[in-house]
Amino acid sequence: MDVEERDEHSGHLTTGHEWNGIKELNTPVPRAVYFFLSLAFLFSVGYWILMPAWPFGVSYTKGLLGIDQQKVVAESLQQAAVARSGWVKKIETEDFATILSDPVLMKIVRETGRPLFGSNCAVCHGTDAKGGKGFPNLTTPSWQWGGGPENIANTIRVGINSAHPDAHSSQMPAFGREGMLNRPDIERIVDFVYSLSNPESKDLNPEGVKAGKDLFAANCAACHGENAKGNPEVGAPNLADKFWIYGGDRRTIYTTVWGGRQGHMPTWEGRLSYIDRKILTLYLVDKRQPDQ
C-alpha cells in the first residue's frame, strides 16, 4: 500500500500514504524555514538576556540593560514636567491680566486649552463651546455666575449644584408645580419676560406684559433684579438679552417658570489640576473676546 510515487509536476516523491485521494510529497523543508526559525530564536535569546524575561522562584531575570517599564514611565513623566516647567510656572503665578496680554503664553493657552476643553467640557458645551439646550453658550458676554476670569475659574472649581462644599447653588423654584403661581399669572409673566428680549415682536400681548411686569416684580425680581438683568451673585441669568440656556420662546419660558430649573455642572477640583483649570479659564476668556 505504501508505494512512493514521483509527482510529475514537481519531480518530488510522495510519502506513499494516501487519504481519500490526498497524497503528500516528501519535499524537504526549505532551508529558509530553518534559517528564519534560528534567526527568530537567536533574536529572542538576545532579547531575553537584555530585558526582564524568565521567571524563577519569586523573582525573574532582570536583563543586562536594567530596563523596567515602571521606571521608564516615571522618568519620562518627570522629564516632560521639567520641559514644561518654564511656562507652567508663569501661568501658575502670574495674574490673569498679565497672561492675557502675553502673546507667547496665550499661544500656549490656545493650543493646550483646546484639547483640554475637548476632552473635559465639550461633551456638554460642544467642541465649539457654543453649548446646546440646557448647556450655556460660553462664547457670549452673558454669564450666569459672572464672566470675569476669577468668576469663571471659581465656577470650574466648585461646579453648580455639585457635591463640592462651596458649590454654586442654582435653584429656580417650580412656581407652577409648587402652587406659588396659577396658570394665568404664569402666562402673564411669560408675556412680560418674552417682551424683554423681543421688544419689537408683533405678537406681544400689551395687557399681559403690563400685568406680568407687576407679577415679575413680586415673584422674580428678588433674584433676577428689578430690570430682569440677572444677578451673577446668585446665578440668576439676565432675561433681557438674546442669550438663553433653555430657550427663549414662550413655550420654553412657560416650562421654565412652571417647573423651575436646577442645572448641574460637576466640580473640577480634584479632577483637573490648578494649572489645567486656569488654562481652561484663560482659554474661555480668550475665546469670547471677539464678541465683546
Binding site: D7, N20, G21, K23, E24, L25, N26, V29
Partner: peptide, 14 residues
C-alpha cells in the same frame, strides 16, 4: 489539495 487535485507540497513542512 482535493479541490486542486494536487498532493500536499511537503509532509515534513506540515
Amino acid at each position: 489539495p482535493v479541490r486542486a487535485g494536487r498532493p500536499i507540497f511537503s509532509y515534513r513542512l506540515s
